[in-house]
């Protein structure tokens, strides 16, 4: 299985895609099998927090995991989205192949060939796979929610003290205690989920 860092790196990394590959992500392609496969892989990876098997993708996309459906999905992956670099194929054992998205944010680019060599030019905004499908561990959301809880509690403690609802001694103890807890949470988010907080915008 991939580790947590590898999964998070796939979120923070923006992958360049040529126009003919970027089309698979666009809304106009949402009826196409390729589009469904990409989003199914994202949702399944989010549920399992790791790469997913062909049978699971077939079940999610077509509601059936039978062999013919799997063959069709495998061919679609191999012939299009794997070649485009949208999906990565991982072989865990001779009969255990799994798939995962290479990134969750994509930039459409136009390839430019000139005498200076090959370069690319970005086109439009970065496309994001819906955040609800990002493989972010539960711990991140727990820490973010607790951070909000402690922030709100500190505001209330200050407000209650201003209204003379609590004595100074109790107020200072509580402020110290909750500020310390809040700082610990902030440090943990920064060290374990670097870059994620800004992207998620919680």
């Amino acid at each position: 299985m991939l580790n947590e860092k590898d999964l998070l790196d796939r979120i923070t990394h923006v992958r360049d895609l040529k126009e003919n590959c970027f089309k698979y992500l666009e809304e106009s392609s949402q009826e196409l099998l390729t589009h469904k496969i990409i989003f199914a892989i994202a949702e399944l990876t989010n549920e399992k927090m790791g790469p997913v098997k062909l049978a699971e993708i077939a079940q999610k996309v077509s509601g059936s995991g039978d062999k013919s459906k799997q063959d069709l999905i495998r061919l679609t992956i191999e012939k299009s989205i794997l070649r485009c670099g949208l999906v990565e194929k991982l072989r865990y054992a001779p009969n255990d192949v799994r798939y995962i998205l290479t990134a969750y944010r994509f930039q459409k680019v136009r390839q430019i060939d000139s005498f200076r060599g090959e370069s690319s030019e970005p086109l439009g905004k970065v496309f994001e796979i819906p955040k609800s499908s990002w493989p972010i561990p539960d711990e991140f959301y727990i820490l973010e929610s607790k951070k909000h809880g402690y922030n709100e509690a500190l505001k209330k403690i200050n407000s209650d003290f201003d209204k003379d609802l609590i004595p100074r001694g109790r107020y200072e103890d509580l402020v110290r205690e909750y500020t310390e807890s809040l700082n610990q949470i902030r440090n943990k988010i920064t060290s374990q989920f670097k870059g994620i907080e800004e992207l998620v915008g919680t």
Binding site: E144, S145, K146, H148, G149, Y150, N151, E152, A153, K156, I157, L174, Y178, T202
Partner: peptide
């Protein structure tokens, strides 16, 4: 306050 933290955490 502890309950308040829990409430606000769940709200978030």
């Amino acid at each position: 306050i502890t309950d308040y933290v829990k409430l606000k955490t769940l709200e978030n």
